[in-house]
């Protein structure tokens, strides 16, 4: 008898595809198609009843939309009509700028907090108060002080991505085994050399985990921030399409947000595997 023998990955992939297809079919089936507009009275036509009503789009509509958008992602036809590639590009640019500024502050500061118990105790109250503040709560203050909406969005990303990196760096550095630090000491390594050749690689898995959490949060926040500041970016795009009642574009952009977020996470996942070591 012929038996189908598939590897674990193949079986999982098969199941994923199956779930996708079933999901899409159910979606397609439960959404009633746009009713054919029958005979309308003159009054109805005048009041706009004949215009197609917005409804939840069918998967086939979304796929058609995706095809249309992705085949020309970088067109620019004015402030309210830019390709998805340009919108995502703006968002990624803001996220990465705010994120790297945050890393530039958080990682050295985390080292300081991790290595000095005094610094830890002194800074901890500030961290504990500032950390739970929703990044968007900073927005009015940022807009007022900075004045520029673009820079305010970057500031919001900065402030939301700093905490996981700061806390994880401090935790990782403080947790470096004394034995390894002693190895550095008995080899007469200077403070800087010890930091780079022993403490950084030892704490790297924890630090990169913090960086991975931060990039995830930054990507969540940018959508909301751009809805507020407007102009460009994927968040603004979603809101703009909602105002246009183009739900097909809304669903399509939601999907794109998910895909970009997954790719950002995968990048840090790769970095994490690179720096992880087994004791």
């Amino acid at each position: 008898m012929y038996t189908l023998s598939l590897s674990l990955n193949q079986r999982a992939a098969l199941l994923s595809v199956l779930m996708l297809v079933v999901g899409l079919l159910v979606w397609e089936a439960v959404i009633p198609g746009q009713k054919a507009v029958g005979e309308l009275t003159e009054y109805e036509i005048l009041t706009g009843a004949g215009a197609p009503k917005a409804g939840v789009p069918l998967p086939s509509d979304v796929i058609a939309k995706a095809w249309e958008q992705l085949s020309d992602p970088f067109y620019d036809a004015g402030p309210n009509d830019k390709g998805i590639g340009i919108q995502i590009g703006y968002s990624i640019y803001r996220v990465l700028t705010g994120y790297f500024l945050a890393a530039l502050v958080a990682i050295p500061l985390g080292f300081l907090i991790g290595m000095s118990p005094v610094a830890h105790k002194a800074l901890n109250p500030f961290i504990q108060v500032l950390r739970p503040i929703s990044p968007l709560a900073w927005m009015p203050l940022a807009l007022f002080i900075i004045g520029d909406s673009e820079a305010s969005a970057i500031f919001v990303i900065f402030i939301c991505s700093i905490w996981p990196m700061l806390i994880n760096t401090a935790f990782g550095v403080a947790g470096v085994r004394d034995d390894w630090v002693n190895v550095a000491r008995t080899h007469e390594l200077g403070a800087l050399k010890t930091a780079f050749t022993v403490i950084l690689p030892a704490a790297a898995p924890t630090i990169v985990t913090g960086m991975r959490i931060s990039i995830g949060i930054a990507w969540l926040v940018i959508v909301a921030a751009e809805m507020l500041v407007g102009g460009t970016g994927i968040g603004y795009y979603v809101w703009n399409e909602w105002n246009n009642l183009d739900l097909t574009s809304v669903v399509f952009s939601i999907l794109m947000i998910g895909i970009v977020g997954m790719m950002l996470d995968a990048m840090f996942g790769f970095l994490q595997r690179r720096v992880t070591y087994v004791e």
Binding site: N182, V183, E188, P201, A202, Y277, E279
Partner: peptide
């Protein structure tokens, strides 16, 4: 501590992110 006094610790104290050779070159280059 000084390079004039080498220490072999009970738990080896090797740096696990380095290869065996790099663990030794770490000391030699210091």
């Amino acid at each position: 501590p000084s390079l004039d006094r080498g220490v072999v610790f009970q738990n080896y104290s090797l740096l696990p992110w380095l290869t065996t050779l790099k663990n030794v070159t770490f000391g030699v280059s210091a």
